[in-house]
Design a protein around this nucleic acid. Structure first.
Length: 820
RNA sequence: GCAGGAGUGGCGGAAUGGCAGACGCAGCAGACUCAAAAUCUGCCGGGGGUAACUUCGUGUGGGUUCAAGUCCCAUCUCCUGCACCA
């Protein structure tokens, strides 16, 4: 008897599939686009954690092939960017060489998964034929005014020696290397992603994405509604505009705080406060953003100047404090200590009056006047009833002049308009997120296709001259000066203005890694097109992506950028949809022991190579699924793979023993067959891939038992092979062939099931006494209540002590006697 | 602080309100073997009992229900994300 030999079976079927692909577009099939987040070709190669997402997406792809669809399942390389360049520097090899080597290496590793990738569709972001279009998109954005230059302090990673987008800064540190991020004043190319803020937000509810990711994008964009209010400066013909989401509390404003970076900060200082103000501004400028974030203890300095609250004409002191952010809103806030935690803390620390303007329980405080510790109460100076600020917008307005007795929640909505009508300010919508800093001062990226002309300003490289090739340089290491290594290449930098022909200089910054990944998924389906990014016809036929599988780490970076790019390409007529990914699935991470992330430095990386050699690809695929629910993190344990290997060995032996026996099908076998199809199909639909594997094992155990008695019929074994095909494709093909079939199992279609044929004649029903199961009885499936109760009594009467006060029978479920 | 997720045997994990621990790993005992590996069979949450059986048991405390891992209220711990955004 032949035993299961995975390496023999797998190389055989890999060869056959190479010659006769199982996934074909006959022009009639419905398409299904199943996409993986493409990897950057790191020098370390793949570990079992990388496999997980690829196995999941391949199972989905093969399932859809079995369902009769044409599946677009491509793979490519996100090969520009910092990781690739840092690796090249480390191994002293030009990034173009090291990247190519790494791609060749990873491609071979990915092929070991035996996924149905269509390698004719492969893309590589560093291929000039690809980045021609990355540059083309930038030029289109420039023409539409969405790409613009700005001199400003940006996030700077001193270790990577480049500017970073806000999205790339996590807790004040570089997302890549973890170094604390500093500020550097640089002239930058920016993309006006904020123009798309509302669309990026408002589309989210329609996407079939994990709620977590939608929430992260919502928070990141951070839209808020409120008002800008103008506060005249006392004794000067100037004003300060503040942004507030709580204009309803305007009467409670007792001071104002400006960010130390605010342009008026210095000029507001009165002579006697000048030194303190200067010192404070200087101290703040020295702090890193990490320090500023971590130290939540309020600090501040009084400028000596006052502003006039326009609603009631009261003078309020103007302070500076670093808890106000310069780049959000107007960089100045009105402070209502009674109804804002931060303002409350600040007021307490610096003894500023606190005036309550919302009564929580709908009543004004009884006497309305409670003196505050250490200060003399001014007229109308009231403390909140309890410790701390009352921040909810619900309750009745008090101490608020004409607004008294109004409901706070209603006023909050109406106030911006009231303020606008009174000419005190205007309605305003604000966003937390900023335009996208798009320049990188590094070598290994797409050159930004812009020429700077003294006369004409920035001029795009003419489209027919694209791609603008990344020139070969002697030294590609980052300079750290804020200039790209390209700046040193005078021959390349100096050029003629395409507009006026005069002397001009090329832009020397490159694009961020995200540039290519923001649109690569569009290119797969038309990757050889030299005249268009993607043809209308192919875009219509194959796009957008139906299922996107990848890690959650890209929730606000890649996924937000890709949506922005797609919306833009929609707007200029390249594609006719504006959301790229209909459905998103985030697989959990595979970690080493104790949940520690797999990394070379930790020495806990598990390579798939040895496992494939010892157990085969099918076993590893199954174990990647069996290790736990696909959306949760899972700890890798090498020993677990023995279980799935034993399962496949037993299954193989079963089929080899049963196939020539000519076993007649029995009602039990028919029932099991349909139950199997039903179980696998429904678990597949629920995405419960770990329990799919359990179900295969369970049914295999049942069939092992039956093989000792009635045997297992061919039809049932064939059904098993078809169901197994998306999960363990090689052995499924082998068994399918052994069972006498001459076509591929992937041409056999996904097995249907008939719920009627799944039903058993008898059912097992637990008999409970006071909810505790005492015994299980077997009854006919359509048993009546009376018969069931009678059967229940005869089964447990000997154990009943006391009177039965209630008899419960739930058909097919339970018999329960309530006894007193 | 806010939001989301999780808490079940030695371990990974199963359970449309209806037999808690499926399936697998590890472990124990046995069979085969000169022996080992592989394979096969049985056992495998805690307490009590030779056993039939009994009792407790899904982070903790309450509640709803004939019946709760599952629903409700409160609470603790861990993980993830966001965090002075006015």
């Amino acid at each position: 008897m032949k035993t299961y030999n995975p390496s023999e079976i797998e190389s055989k079927w890999n060869r056959i599939w190479e010659e006769k692909p199982v996934n074909k577009d006959d022009g009639k099939k419905e398409k299904f686009y199943c996409l993986d987040m493409f990897p950057y070709p790191s020098g370390n190669g793949l570990h079992v954690g990388h496999w997980r997402g690829y196995v999941i997406s391949d199972v989905i792809s093969r399932y859809h092939i079995m369902k009769g669809q044409y599946v677009i399942h491509p793979m490519g390389w996100d090969a520009f960017g910092l990781p690739a360049e840092n690796y090249a520097i480390k191994v002293h090899e030009h990034p173009s060489i090291s990247t190519e080597k790494n791609i060749d290496n990873i491609r071979e590793q990915i092929k070991q998964i035996s996924a149905v990738y269509d390698w004719d569709m492969e893309v590589n972001t560093t291929d000039p034929k690809f980045y021609k279009w990355t540059q083309w998109i930038f030029v289109q954005m420039f023409k539409k005014g969405l790409a613009y230059e700005k001199q400003m302090p940006i996030n700077w990673c001193p270790s990577c020696k480049t500017g970073l987008a806000n999205e790339e800064v996590v807790d004040g540190a570089c997302e890549r290397c973890g170094s604390p991020v500093t500020k550097k004043n640089l002239k930058q190319w920016m993309l006006k992603i904020t123009n798309y803020a509302d669309r990026l937000l408002d589309d989210l509810p329609n996407l079939d994405w994990p709620e977590k990711v939608k929430k992260m994008q919502t928070d990141w964009i951070g839209r808020s509604y409120g008002a800008e209010v103008d506060f005249p400066i006392d004794g000067r013909n100037e004003k300060i505009t503040v942004y507030t989401t709580r204009p309803d509390t305007l009467f409670g404003c007792t001071f104002m705080v400006l960010a130390p970076e605010h342009e008026m900060a210095k000029s507001l200082a009165t002579p006697e406060n000048e030194k303190a103000v200067d010192d404070y501004i200087f101290e703040t400028s020295k702090k890193s953003s990490v320090d500023r974030l971590q130290n939540k203890e309020k600090t501040g300095v009084f400028t000596g100047s006052y502003a006039i609250n326009p609603i009631n004409g009261k003078r309020v002191p103007i302070w500076l404090s670093d808890y106000v952010l310069a780049d959000y809103g107007t960089g100045a806030v009105m402070c209502v200590p009674a109804h804002d935690d931060r303002d409350y803390e600040f007021a307490k620390k610096f003894n500023i009056p606190i005036i309550q303007v919302i009564s929580k329980n709908g009543k004004a405080t009884s006497d309305g006047r409670i003196p505050m510790d250490g200060i003399t109460p001014e007229d109308g100076n009231v403390l909140p009833e309890n410790e701390g600020a009352y921040t909810a917008a619900s309750g009745i307005m008090i101490n608020s002049g004409e607004w008294d007795k109004m409901e706070s929640s209603e006023l909050k909505v109406k106030a911006p308009e009231i303020i606008e009508k009174k000419g005190l300010g205007k309605k305003k919508k604000n966003y937390k997120f900023r335009d996208w800093v798009f320049s990188r001062q590094r070598y290994w990226g797409e050159p930004i296709p812009i020429i700077h002309c003294e006369k004409c300003g920035p001029v795009p490289v003419p489209e027919e001259e694209l791609p603008l090739l990344l020139p070969d340089v002697d030294s590609y290491e980052p300079t750290g000066t804020g200039e790209s290594p390209l700046a040193a290449m005078e021959d390349w930098v100096n050029c003629k203005c395409p507009n006026c022909g005069g002397p001009a200089k090329r832009e020397t910054n490159t694009m961020p890694q995200w540039a290519g990944s923001s649109w690569y998924f569009l290119r797969y389906v038309d990757n050889k097109n030299e005249s268009e990014l993607v043809s209308k016809e192919r875009a219509k036929k194959y796009l957008p992506v139906d299922m996107y599988v990848g890690g959650v780490e890209h929730a606000v970076l890649h996924l937000l950028y890709a949506r922005f790019y797609t919306m833009f390409l929609h707007d200029i007529g390249v594609v006719d949809f504006d959301e790229p990914f209909k459905k998103l699935f985030n697989q959990g991470m595979i970690t080493g022991k104790n949940g520690i992330k797999m990394s070379k430095s930790k020495g806990n990386v598990v390579s798939p190579d040895d496992l494939i050699r010892d157990y085969g690809c099918d076993s590893l695929r199954l174990y990647e699924l069996f290790v736990g629910p696909p959306e949760l993190d899972a700890e890798w344990d090498d020993r677990g793979i023995d279980g799935v290997y034993r399962f496949l060995s037993k299954l193989y032996r079963l089929v080899m023993e049963e196939k020539d026996k000519d076993v007649k099908e029995t009602p039990e076998l028919v029932r099991l067959r349909h139950q199997l199809s039903y179980t696998i199909t429904s678990r597949m639909k629920n995405f419960s891939l770990n329990t799919v594997v359990s179900a295969f094992m369970e049914f295999n155990n049942k069939f092992q038992e039956l093989s000792k008695t009635t045997g297992v019929d061919k039809e049932t074994l064939c059904t098993y092979a078809r169901l197994l095909a998306p999960f363990a494709p090689h052995i499924a093909e082998e068994l399918w062939e052994a069972l006498g079939n001459t076509n591929s199992v992937f041409e056999a279609g996904w097995p249907e099931y008939d719920e009627k044929l799944m039903e058993e004649d008898t059912i097992e029903i637990p008999v409970q006494v006071n909810g505790k199961t005492k015994v299980v009885v077997t009854l006919p499936k359509n048993v009546s209540k009376d018969e069931a109760i009678a059967a229940g009594h005869s089964a447990v009467d000997s154990k009943l002590s006391g009177n039965v006060v209630k008899e419960i029978f739930v058909p097919g479920r339970i018999i329960n006697f309530v006894v007193k």
